[in-house]
Nucleic acid binder design. Structure first.
Lengths: 182, 182, 182, 182
DNA sequence: AATGAATGAGGTTTCATTCAT
DNA sequence: GATGAATGAAACCTCATTCAT
């Protein structure tokens, strides 16, 4: 079996088990059992449980950063930019729903390293919003309102209540109308 | 209703250690060392580590619920109600800053029991907002926007950046002007 | 059971198992089984396997140092001093024969820390010899000859061949006659 | 009799790594990395880690035996024989300084097999000495004194303190004058 | 002959919990 | 109520060795 096949099996298994049991209640033995490989194999690919988690987190945050970069460059009206950016982000997170749960509900609990990644990604999005609202005098407050609102819909509606992406986007769009005015 | 000195010592120690190390990295041995009592004494007052954490959480959420109840009954303009409710909540959380960090950054990671408490308290606040906005047709979206915005300021400005409560309230007030219109 | 009872049991067991299996082939599980205590109990008294070994080593080297100190102060002829010092040392080592095997056959293999203790004790004995021969112009060479000879008898005759102390002392005495002249 | 390139690479690597890390702290993975071959290749040439170590040990002891054989046959005065034998031995060991450290500081710790080789080589040297002193009534004690003295200089001066061979030979010569008389 | 991914037994260590005093 | 030594299950991780390619 090729090296990367096994790593993919381990990553998939890790995502699944982390999602089901949370970071702290996940045992490396759970992951290898799920992946169908030996205990030692895990340590060929990852230095530790934390290292594996970090790998997954980076996998997702890098995709998030790509989306930010894409919309930063796109020439759209403020509202369209915000809404379509949200749409794509929500879709990404919905696709990786289980990973997202780790990211949003457990990430910051693990240790400083993960909190930093979380804060960093947040700051990138905030910067993107502020840039988008650079013509407004309260750009930062707008950014915070939208970030908070977006995160809330993400956490509660998308992830906890398992509402469809469509529903979330619609609600977000309504909110944006209120926040930015019609 | 008074608690024994030893229990108070244990609670204070638990709050301190949980705050510093997080739930999963806190050892019962850390707590008893901090409290200056023997290992076994812990188990006279709490069934388990989880039980001690739960006790602390309930201690704080019950105060939060008192505030909700108080403002639900208070006859104020929407804006004033929202802002003064936020003010008092932020003050409570600022007073119990370390406990709040557990609540907001770790609560949900522990297990379903704690996630439920978090969601329940959130829902109580949301219900309070919806009730407040019962004259608006988009009451729920308003609630979500404000909850998200408030939580964001709480997490990032108050808890992570350690900004003073005054600063947070001002920012919240500005946001509310934008959201509710002047 | 008192704290020190358990520690004594663990030390005795550790000495026995280390003696039988050598440092590297000794498992903490062997020691606790021999001591009749639980695995975790070991770690109440010792930080690690290495720590336990170090404790034993220090126990013995400190007795060796007492003997050195005693003979340094004793007013005897050179030959008598050397021979009676050797006698007492060989008796100590014979009493703690098993510990001595660890000290002489395994000590230095473990790591720098143990090599240092070995070298340090050696240097103390050498200094004692040089002091004793301070009237001779080749004091250091005499010290090296006697140390080497003494160690050889210790290693081969006393420890490996299990010759009685009496035999070793007699041989040592004969050697000393040759080295120091009659 | 010539060995494959790969085996030579493995032997050189093993000598280097064993020398640097000691037997127990050397991993087969360290050796193959140093040799630049794959993990499995090691097991084509050696049955196990122990087998590789044994190979190296035999490589060196056989050279030592050649020296013994050479001086046994050489017709020289006792003193000259002893001193020139020592000179050649010290040179061999100095050339293979790193291997010697394994031999003298770790050999006996590994297991019975290695202790036996050590004792056997020692006995060959002792027999050589006794043979040399066969005219003396205390031949064995002379042998033990010189062996002990020689080993001490080897261990402490040559190997630990890295003194030059010349220094060690000079010291040995002085000692021999004392032991055998002028 | 050479590779190197995979194995898995077995090691060290942690720590929540118990219980005799 | 208080103690704290003892417990032991269960976690993490290592690494000599195998074997299909």
């Amino acid at each position: 079996m090729s090296q990367s096949d096994t790593k993919v099996k381990l990553i998939d298994a890790a995502v699944k088990v982390f999602s089901e049991k949370g970071y702290f209640n996940t045992r490396v033995s759970d992951i290898v059992k799920e992946a169908g490989v030996a205990q030692g194999t895990f340590y060929i690919y990852f230095k530790s449980k934390e290292d594996a988690f970090l790998f997954i987190v980076n996998m997702v945050t890098s995709q998030m950063e790509d989306i930010i970069e894409k919309y930063r460059r796109l020439d759209l009206s403020q509202k369209d930019k915000i809404i379509r950016f949200a749409e794509e982000s929500y879709n990404l997170i919905s696709d990786y729903r289980e990973i997202a749960k780790i990211l949003f509900f457990q990430l910051m609990c693990v240790d400083e390293k993960f909190k930093e990644i979380y804060v960093e990604t947040n700051n990138k999005i905030k910067t993107f919003y502020i840039e988008t609202f650079k013509n407004k005098k309260n750009a930062e407050i707008f950014a915070d309102i939208i970030l908070g609102f977006g995160k809330r819909l993400l956490e509660f509606d998308l992830l906890m209540d398992d509402k469809p992406v469509k529903h979330v986007i619609d609600k977000f769009t309504s909110g944006i109308q209120i926040i930015l005015g019609d």
